[in-house]
């Protein structure tokens, strides 16, 4: 295991052994429930989870990845560890998944920054070591690029659908693929999310601690609201359900899939503002671009023509069709459930 400095633990708290960390600092979970000063950390932890359910990344007190004062830094780590305790106490899988995803995104930013760090070689080294330890990818640096073995590259990129990730569209030399820091981190995004999720799932669930009840209850009710917010209801055809699931898992949905989903929901009279949040987990999410594209499809900008949802036939050719018996006799996903005879 990697030995981490103080600010490294704050950046990558999921690498710390939670129980051990608290013990080393001389704290017990019970104290956090009672001590009014420590209670602030629970508030922070609650906030950290809440933010993740909104598809946002928790904004930390770290300034540019460096904690200004020791206590800020400590609170930072506490809030992560306590967030896990809260999540385990709620037992809500959806919350855990959302949280892990958001934390992965957060760590991604630091990893990318550390990889690109020219002035501090030790930061870069640590990022490289984390990637090696966690995902068994040996990254080396060469001519301002990171290089990874072609076989490693293929094992991770194989699930990406964009053509620019195809090996033929990469710079390949002597058995290595050349990547920028951003691309390197993008390559392990899914694994990073899985790593954090697994870590949380495997963490022991403590018995309820006094002082934790309130935030736990709040999170449970939050998760209920949040579940009804997701628009997967029975009336959607399997292709649309599949697309929504892919996005919820934070995986990449190809452009054609996004087009299908957006045009379908627009045709069902959902507004651009209602649809946009669906794309928040997409690996390459950018709010402005998403709104722009949705408005374009809705015909509220640009040409003014509203795009229609592709036919089942077209979707089949794009591998987006997951027909079930109820799909018989329909030609377009929009007819699903309307023509049952």
């Amino acid at each position: 295991m990697i030995t981490l400095g103080k600010d490294e633990i704050a950046k990558y708290p999921f690498l710390a052994d939670a129980g051990q960390y608290l013990k080393d600092k001389g704290f017990t979970l019970q104290q956090f429930g009672i001590d009014p000063d420590l209670k602030l950390s629970i508030d922070k932890a609650f906030n950290r989870v809440q933010v993740s359910t909104e598809g946002k990344i928790y904004k930390s007190d770290l300034i540019d990845g460096e904690a200004s004062k020791d206590f800020v830094l400590e609170r930072e780590v506490f809030s992560f560890l306590l967030a896990i305790v809260l999540l385990k106490l709620t037992g809500m899988t959806t919350l855990i998944k959302r949280f892990a995803l958001a934390e992965a995104r957060r760590a991604e930013k630091y990893l990318e920054k550390d990889l690109a760090n020219i002035s501090d070689g030790s930061k870069k080294e640590l990022a490289i070591r984390i990637i090696d330890d966690l995902f068994s990818i040996q990254i080396k640096e060469q001519n301002n690029h990171f290089i990874i073995p072609v076989s490693n590259y293929l094992q991770h990129s194989i699930n990406f659908h964009e053509r620019e990730w195809k090996l033929i569209n990469r710079h390949v030399e002597k058995g290595f693929v050349f990547l920028t820091p951003h691309e390197t981190v993008r390559l392990i995004r899914k694994e990073l999310g899985n790593y954090i999720t697994t870590k949380i799932f495997n963490a022991k669930t403590p018995t309820m601690i006094s002082g934790f009840e309130e935030p736990v209850d709040k999170l449970i009710s939050l998760s209920k609201k949040f579940v009804t917010h997701t628009i997967t209801t029975g009336e959607y055809p399997p292709c649309i359900k599949h697309a929504i699931e892919v996005l919820e898992r934070g995986e990449n949905l190809p452009h054609s899939g996004r087009f299908m989903l957006a045009t379908f929901l627009l045709a069902r009279n959902q507004s651009v503002q209602q649809i946009a949040p669906l794309f928040k987990n997409a690996p390459d999410y950018n709010e402005r671009v998403t709104l722009y594209q949705l408005n374009h499809l809705a015909g509220t900008s640009g040409s003014g023509t509203q795009y229609s949802c592709p036919s089942c036939e077209k979707l089949k050719t794009q591998n987006l069709c997951f027909a079930i018996p109820e799909c018989d006799n329909i030609f377009n996903p929009l007819q699903f459930g309307k023509r049952r005879k």
Binding site: V150, S151, L154, Q155, I158, E164, L167, I168, N169
Partner: peptide, 27 residues
């Protein structure tokens, strides 16, 4: 080679690479 353990899908990617298939103009 480093490719011994690759599965079928990854080998298909290697094939595309060797055959110059799936290129995009941007490359």
């Amino acid at each position: 080679s480093q490719f011994q353990q690759l599965g079928s899908r990854e080998r298909a990617e290697l094939v595309d690479y060797l055959m110059f298939k799936g290129t995009i103009p941007e490359t």
